[in-house]
Design a protein around this nucleic acid. Structure first.
Length: 564
RNA sequence: CGGGGUAUAGCUCAGCCUGGUAGAGCGCUAGCUUUGGGAGCUAGAUGUCGAGAGUUCGAAUCCCUCUACCCCGACCA
């Protein structure tokens, strides 16, 4: 490609509200332009990168045995009613009408369509297993689109859906996809982690998210420094402390804490550590309030709490009025000692291992010190309730938990029979009976990967692409071509030779001054730069510099060619 | 949906408080000079000041309504 025939549109300024690095750099490099909230045009430069990611994803999906197809982006309401998701999917579902007032949605995902396809196409167990995939534009009407293409409303996704006769077969394909995803992100040159994730309302046994590690990531992930264990923080198990609970030594003592409500205030006022306190929260249970206790230095994990049998599937804090009515004190003074019998007390493992602890006195302005389980406070049940913290022992017993931030770029999921059942997608099995197919689904956020890669690979000058997704691998910068025909000739010759060798090369023949040219090539992150100049030609050399290098080298033509 | 903010040249923004007829930088056009880290000089072109309705002799500026966009939060199979 000759840059003079391309539309490279770098800019110096960027709107003040473009906050994260990838968004700013994508705008500055001229990769994307915003059309409306959460809607972006992929300019030629951005599209080159997007296509490279897409190609690698496609290649690896094909290699893994998946079969590509392409489904409509627009889907009829009736299909979504069969799975009852027309209403349930919520506001993210963009609903549209055609000229006859028939209703459709712009597909946020394609379980319905693929299952409809499968029920029409697949009749015999002999056709299974099968994994269909597509790379296609999705639309989710996010409440708050932000961060450019990182969380856009319209985005490019690779989604795959597999069909099986048995859960065992699904499990095999699941791990096949897991391996495939690992290969994809490795090939893309990204630092990533596969983490155990929350299966959510769908159920299913195992689900993994693939996260690109970046400080700006929206998700928190926990991983072990001593093993392969990694999980979304929502899911990461907080194991019980190794030590048994010490025996009670202190008497229960009520102390006045007139205005001290928070753990910070209590620890300062009573000169105790937060690890020696028990924090009690009241949530709305299935039948009245439920008390959840964690250690003072820990926080409740709401996802874990929501799964408790005593809770209705979500954890909602009781409000002040409810608390006063039930216990007679304000939040801030609640404790497990002396709670009404009707309130179950569910205690986190770490909190349950405390003795002689400080907790709320269940009366305004008082706390207890020297409180002990069993003797002073009832434990209905011990459970894993808290968020893991950095340094916790790893749940697999090897190493310690470290926390990192990640950007979710992939998700593999064992769906089971939910959709196949709702849509009656069956095949005839070996015994001649109808058999509901078991499904898996596997998503990759193709457009999000582009932004995530930048979050992980940039410097003060701009983007530093991993080679496999760079818009071009090599840039040839021609300096003052008008002054010396030999410079142009050398550049053209090198450009032609690299082209013949199949190197993805771009010739910057725009005639810019050197500063502008270098700044552009660095901003758009081209991994390799070769400068062709009058003084180089005189010396018989080309100047080579990798994007990550701090200095350049003088190379002969052959040496340059040997690099690629 | 709750709270906060913004909308002015192609882009990024100032001007608004305190009403008097439109600005800067970048970009763009032309010319001259310059040519290894986003050049300099000269000359130019460019605006329904988001929309509508008010107050006023006069509105980018004040009031009201609407729309779009952004930030924080809640939400995120």
């Amino acid at each position: 490609m000759r840059l003079s025939k391309f539309h490279l549109a770098t800019v110096k300024e960027v709107p003040a509200d473009a906050e994260i690095v990838s968004h700013r750099l994508m705008l500055r490099a001229g990769m994307i332009r915003k059309l409306a909230a959460g809607l972006y045009t992929w300019a030629p430069l951005g599209l080159r990168v997007l296509r490279k990611v897409e190609a690698i994803v496609r290649e690896e999906m094909n290699r893994a045995g998946a079969v590509e197809l392409l489904m409509p982006a627009v889907q009829p309401r009736e299909l979504w009613e069969e799975t009852e998701r027309w209403e349930r999917f919520g506001g993210q579902l963009l609903k549209i009408k055609d000229r006859k007032d028939a209703e459709y949605c712009f597909g946020p995902t394609h379980e319905e369509v693929i299952t409809d396809f499968a029920r029409a196409e697949l009749h015999s167990y002999k056709q299974l297993p099968l994994n269909f995939f597509q790379i296609q534009t999705k639309f989710r009407d996010e409440i708050r689109p932000r961060f450019g293409v990182m969380r856009a409303r319209e985005f490019l996704m690779k989604d795959a859906y597999s069909f099986h006769l048995s859960a065992d077969c699904l499990e095999r394909e699941y791990w096949n996809m897991y391996e495939t995803y690992s290969r994809i992100f490795t090939r893309l040159g990204l630092k990533f982690r596969a983490v155990q994730a929350d299966a959510g309302a769908i159920g299913g046994n195992v689900t993994h998210e693939f996260h690109v590690l970046a400080d700006s990531g929206e998700d928190a992930i926990a991983f072990s420094d001593g093993s392969e264990y990694a999980a979304n923080v929502e899911m990461a198990e907080a194991v019980a402390p190794l030590q048994e609970r010490p025996v009670a030594t202190a008497p229960l003592e009520r102390v006045a804490t007139p205005t001290q409500k928070t753990i910070d205030e209590i620890t300062a006022f009573l000169a105790v550590s937060s690890q020696a306190c028990v924090k009690t929260l009241l949530v709305r249970g299935c039948t009245g309030l439920v008390a959840l206790c964690v250690r003072g230095d820990h926080e409740i994990n709401e996802v874990k709490a929501a799964k408790l049998a005593e809770l209705p599937g979500e954890s909602v804090l009781a409000d002040e009025a409810e608390i006063i009515k039930a216990i007679g004190c304000k939040p801030g003074f609640i404790g497990p000692a002396g709670l009404p019998e009707s309130i179950p007390v569910i205690v986190d493992r770490s909190a349950a291992a405390l003795a002689d602890f400080v907790c709320g006195g269940n009366a305004d302005g008082t706390h207890y010190r020297g409180a002990n389980w069993d003797r002073d406070a009832r434990i209905t049940r011990v459970a894993d309730l808290r968020k893991v913290v950095d340094g916790d022992p790893s749940p697999d017993g090897k190493g310690h938990i470290r926390l990192a931030r990640g950007i979710e770029v992939g998700h593999v999921f064992q769906l089971g029979t939910k959709y196949a059942e709702a849509l009656k997608a069956t095949v005839i099995d070996q015994s001649g009976k109808n058999h509901v197919m078991t499904m898996g689904c596997y998503g990759i956020g193709v457009s999000r990967i582009v932004a995530a890669a930048i979050e992980q690979n940039f410097d003060a000058s701009g983007i530093v692409w991993p080679e496999p997704m760079a818009p071009w691998r090599v840039a040839l910068c021609v300096i003052n071509p008008k002054n010396d025909a030999a410079v142009t000739a050398a550049a053209e010759s090198l450009y032609a030779e690299l082209g013949v060798r199949g190197v993805d090369v771009v010739l910057d023949d725009r005639g810019l001054r050197p500063g502008g040219m270098f700044a552009d090539m660095e901003l758009i992150g081209i991994p390799h730069r070769v400068v062709i100049s009058e003084r180089g030609i005189a010396a018989g050399t080309f100047e080579y510099r990798a994007r990550r290098d701090s200095e350049s080298r003088q190379l002969s033509r052959d040496e340059v060619l040997a690099l690629f």
